[in-house]
Amino acid sequence: MYKRKSRKLDEPREMEAKVGIIKRADGSAMFKIGNTIAMAAVYGPRNLYPKFMQNPEKGILRVNYNMFSFSVSERIRPGPSRRSKEISLVSENALLSCLNLEEFPNSVIDVYIEILQADAGTRCAGICAASMALADAGIPMRDLVSAISVGKVGDAIVVDLDKEEEDYEGGSTDMPIAMMPRNGKISLLQMDGNMSKEDIKKALELGRNTCNKIYELQKRTLKEKYMVEVENE
């Protein structure tokens, strides 16, 4: 049976969140889980150019996921890659379900997710940061989005895999999930590896519990920022 050294199997790594870290952006946030750090900045809603991309019925959301070249142990080539394009797309779809873009015709909301330090679970950290940044920008949302990766390492179902667990010799499966915790709707579900139907059900249940914890942290962080503002006054 696979065992973890410093934490339980259903325990996520230590989390930290901050809001309003980038002054020039309309909204921004940082989300840290273990050694993974993601930053997100939101600009807009603003006018969309080129004009042919405008949609007079509703606004559009553009998400850009990027890893800094120094974020991993071996330098990665900066700029877009096949992987970062895919993650941008799935993050966009994960965030889109909580936004009501019909209020912003002909305009765009730009979300930039930057990974400062990567130790697995970067897309989940990115989505958590981005949803906080969207709330910080004052964009109407149905709910915040929380995300966590669950999976199977060896023969154990675990929550929040780190890089070491992802590369486990006994075989590992990684399944990132993003959800809106208020009604429990899932907006991102991917899987890399093999898992049985029963294992997926168990993993989803664990992920759901962890997402609720992240949701509490996100709400607390957002409230704290404005609470401080109110108290200082």
Partner: peptide, 23 residues
Amino acid sequence: IASQIGIVNIDNRLVKLIPLNGR
């Protein structure tokens, strides 16, 4: 349900949110 960050304002049966940020 709230859709923005703001201060809750309850006036009899009317539930309102005064936004703290946004355009």
